[in-house]
């Protein structure tokens, strides 16, 4: 495998030295491009109190291409589907090589605080979020308790 680009080394160092509040990202021992991520559910959101596991992978042409990120913990959210795939513009067409792992994870945390049912990935969840927000929020809290709070 090719040597790790300086950019990835610097980003990793900074993530370890000055971690983002509420987010931990640790590179895998066997692959420095693969990160184990844990995001804590933001305060005042239905995900509060939960610990959400994600995986983040830096593809070969990172940072020219966006990192690949996926939720591993089940989550009830209109922009995250059953497989944990995330609908977030900066992971797709709005990616810029000047963005970083740090900015991506901050955006994901913000997405938990402010779900966007008008741009849905999980259609059934988004539908309920629009027609009956209180029930959707109850479901989200329920899922958080069930899947993101053990351990």
């Amino acid at each position: 495998m090719a040597a790790l680009p300086r950019r990835i080394i610097k980003e990793t160092q900074r993530l370890m030295q000055e971690p983002v509040p509420g987010i931990s990202a640790v590179p895998s021992e066997s692959n420095a491009r693969y990160f184990h991520v844990i995001v804590t559910g933001p305060e005042d959101s239905p995900f509060e109190g939960g610990l959400f596991k994600l995986e983040l992978f830096l593809p070969e042409d990172y940072p020219m291409s966006a990192p690949k990120v996926r939720f591993i913990t089940k989550i009830y959210h209109p922009n995250i589907d059953r497989l944990g795939r995330i609908c977030l513009d900066i992971l797709k067409d709005k990616w810029s090589p000047a963005l970083q792992i740090r900015t991506v994870l901050l955006s994901i945390q913000a997405l938990l605080s402010a779900p966007n049912p008008d741009d849905p990935l999980a259609n059934d969840v988004a539908e309920l979020w629009k027609v009956n927000e209180s029930e959707a929020i109850r479901n989200a809290k329920d899922w958080t308790r069930r899947y993101a709070m053990d351990n």
Binding site: R6, P63, A98
Partner: peptide, 13 residues
């Protein structure tokens, strides 16, 4: 100033 001086914000070199 996105990239200050001779430091590139993309490759960090």
């Amino acid at each position: 100033g996105n990239s200050n001086g001779s430091h590139c914000a993309v490759c960090a070199n």
